[in-house]
Computed example of a mutant assay.
Amino acid sequence: MPSPRVSRFFDQVDQAEFAFCRMINSSLRFRPVTMLFQVVSRLGDGWLWYALILSLPLMYPDEGLAIALLMTGAGLTCTLTYKCLKRTLVRERPFISFPVIHCGTPPLDRYSFPSGHTLHAVCFTTVLALTLPALALVVLPFTLAVAASRVVLGLHYPSDVLAGALVGGVMGVVWVALGAGPLLAWFGTVAAG
């Protein structure tokens, strides 16, 4: 249960973001927009990232396995972090707080702060940007679409998405700083030996 102070803060922020959320969410009137963001959201559940992680060793034989392991560790840390934050901060999703905002796809859990989809997408893209920059440029449009989908589908406030992006970016940098050197060195030694 969040403190009364946290609840009051989120109530104020929710009210401030309501009009923008409603405007963005109104694009669901257009079936192609709904379908596009539903697909992006579903792929952002993890499916695209799992496929990418599994394919890295095939695409990049020298460093792919090390980067795949790095992304796996970062992803697990992201999951633990956002679940802990959601349970602690307990911010209701926009479509729950404001019934005029339509839910474009079923959420994976009840609470909205921070956006776990955005957190993972930005973390993985950050890891790639620091290890395989060309591949990061390829996935960047998907990452931006995932972030946008969260507000369009009525699942998150913009501040949820921003918080997820900040936390994910920091986690990606930390994982690369702490793990990339040792993993790449170890796999380089194994490959050479």
Rank of each mutant, 00 (worst) to 15 (best):
S27P: 00
L70V: 10
D11P: 06
L76V: 10
L144C: 15
A19E: 13
P158F: 09
Q12R: 14
L54G: 12
L128G: 01
R8T: 12
G164L: 02
S115F: 05
T77Q: 14
F98C: 03
L162D: 07
V152R: 02
V161I: 06
G169R: 04
H156M: 00
W186S: 14
A148T: 03
R22P: 03
A51P: 06
M23K: 15
V173M: 13
R91F: 07
C21V: 13
M23D: 14
V33G: 08
G193K: 06
K86F: 08
V167I: 15
F124T: 01
V39M: 15
L162K: 07
M171E: 12
G44T: 03
T126Q: 11
C123V: 02
A148M: 12
T79L: 12
A165F: 04
T77K: 00
D109A: 13
V176T: 09
S7R: 15
I67M: 06
L184K: 13
L70E: 03
A68S: 10
L144W: 08
Q38S: 14
L43G: 05
V127H: 05
L178Q: 10
V90G: 00
G169A: 01
N25Y: 12
L28Y: 12
W47S: 06
P158L: 08
M71L: 14
L52M: 13
W186H: 11
A129T: 04
G75S: 14
F95S: 06
G46E: 05
T88R: 00
L80M: 13
A121W: 01
S27N: 05
L135R: 01
S115I: 03
A68V: 07
L144N: 04
A51C: 10
L178D: 08
W49R: 01
T118N: 03
F9Y: 14
V90E: 12
Q38W: 10
G169S: 09
A16M: 07
V173P: 00
F187K: 04
L89G: 04
S149W: 01
R42L: 15
V40P: 07
L155K: 04
A145H: 05
Q15L: 15
I101L: 11
G116D: 02
L58E: 10
S112Y: 03
R91G: 04
V40Y: 08
P2N: 15
F9G: 07
G75C: 12
A163I: 01
Q12T: 11
L48D: 08
V39G: 09
K83N: 08
V146C: 09
L65F: 12
L108T: 14
F18S: 05
M35G: 03
M59V: 11
L89Q: 07
G46H: 09
P57R: 07
P106F: 09
G193C: 09
A68M: 04
L43I: 11
V190R: 13
M71C: 11
L85A: 14
A180G: 15
V127T: 11
T118S: 14
C84I: 10
T72N: 04
A145G: 11
T72K: 09
D62L: 14
